[in-house]
Amino acid sequence: MSAPRMAVSAGGLGLKNPVLAASGTFGYGQEYAPYLDPGAIGGLVTKGLSLRPRPGNPPPRIVETAGGMLNAIGLANLGLDEFLETKLPWLARQQTAVVVNLYGESQEEFAELAARLSQAPGVAALELNVSCPNVKAGGMAFGCDPGAVGRVTRAAVAAAGQVPVWVKLTPNVADPTPMALAAAEAGAAAVCLINTLLGLAIDAQRRRPVLANVVGGLSGPAIKPVGLRMVWQAARALRQSHPQVDVVGIGGIMSGVDAAEYLIAGARAVQVGTANFARPGAAGRVAAELEAFCREQGLADVSELVGALKC
């Protein structure tokens, strides 16, 4: 039989396959160049970018936990100007969709970042980070309030012109649906979920938190059931009211079958995150395994999986 069609349309982009590398786990792409040709995956999402450089949180910043890890990096990044000058030119030459994750402390900062990035050659889409649990201003504070999500998204969409805007949502809410609907209503091309789950690791002997930031975001295979549940909730709601808005599934994807599960829950594309740390090139392996899964299942098109959950 012929190879399954892996190309998808998701979040306003045509992707060669539905597997992207998630923000914060793939650096600016070049870090993984010895291990993975970015052209093997549908896209990559860059480390969260702010207007000005941010040093990030004091160490320790990460700790391994059962089936996952906690991080409190604090959105360390080199700032917009340096990114445009030193990172984007290499990214723009890769045969893959470059999605820039951005973070502002105010609606105005989100808009300014969106305006400047959308004019830069090579930026396929923007992903608004309204869900970082490790920063005090903006971040999750925006992401838990549907009104704020709507305002930030609307401002970024207006500033971004033709460049699609994705909104990355937090799982640190009882129900992500109001945030997904607010982003959709404000013109987002996709909602991406989930970001990390707020957690705490304790060193019992020292009676101290392991991370200097005390709390951090949990990622890795441990969070996959939460991600699947929230993708399913958001996709179901959007299908009713905003069928043009796609869901991008994130959370604990280690294998092609994990990716298939997210598609079945309703995602049009997926992002591979922590798995990239565990094995460089993991996102490429997930893409290859997803294709193998489609073949085994006798599918002509990977998109046949999308929303195929029977319940």
Binding site: E31, P58, P59, I73, F277, P280
Partner: peptide, 17 residues
């Protein structure tokens, strides 16, 4: 030495001042 997830400069977990 520092706790480290990726080893390649992506996770930003292994920093020192």
């Amino acid at each position: 030495e520092a706790p480290m997830a990726c080893g390649v400069g992506a996770c930003l977990g292994c920093v020192l001042p």
